[in-house]
């Protein structure tokens, strides 16, 4: 899929670039672009967060991003350019952790593709976050099991939105 860009970016080398994502999905065919930007936020579950360390199994993460792109293309049934990039390493408060951008002819498909992709990244990609707190403590976030779809694990995190419970638990 030539209209797909996937990347893992080591934070020590560069920050994720939202403008680059917008450039990639821009196209004369497209009147709609939707972008999701996930950032490190200050509080999670009442604890003050100072940063997050992201661990990734990079080769499988990139394969997963590509599979998500192909699925979005199939489900959308419309022209699509999709950009998925995730940060790796230590991020500070306010740093961008993930960028997903979708360009399509109309806004409905753009929102649909962007939502599909960010939810799939959160639930399917081999990525782990360790939150660091102001009291010096750290904790790995609970998450979604890749081997047990019916996992009753609950997850809360300090990035992005505490969104809808799309598969039985909140993120």
């Amino acid at each position: 899929m030539d209209d797909l860009h996937v990347a893992v970016v080591e934070r020590q080398l560069a920050a994720l670039n939202v403008a680059e994502a917008l450039d990639f999905v821009s196209d004369p065919r497209f009147g709609g672009i939707a972008v999701f930007v996930g950032k490190v936020r200050e509080f999670n579950l009442g604890r003050q967060v100072t940063g997050i360390s992201y661990d990734l199994f990079e080769p499988l993460a990139l394969r997963t991003f590509r599979a998500i792109g192909e699925r979005a293309q199939h489900e959308l049934g419309a022209p699509l350019k999709l950009y998925i990039a995730h940060a790796k390493g230590h991020l500070s408060l306010g740093d961008v952790a993930v960028v997903v951008a979708a360009g399509t002819p109309h806004r409905a498909e753009a929102f649909q593709a962007c939502r599909l992709a960010i939810e799939a990244v959160k639930h399917e990609a081999p990525i782990w976050k360790q939150e660091h707190y102001i009291d010096g403590d750290s904790a790995w976030s609970e998450g979604c099991s890749l081997c047990q779809p019916e996992s009753d694990a609950t997850a809360h995190d300090a990035t992005g939105e505490d969104g809808n419970a799309v598969h039985g638990h909140h993120h």
Partner: peptide
């Protein structure tokens, strides 16, 4: 191989 705990990206 790799062993992958429940994931929490994004």
């Amino acid at each position: 191989l790799a062993v992958l705990p429940p994931v929490s990206g994004g």
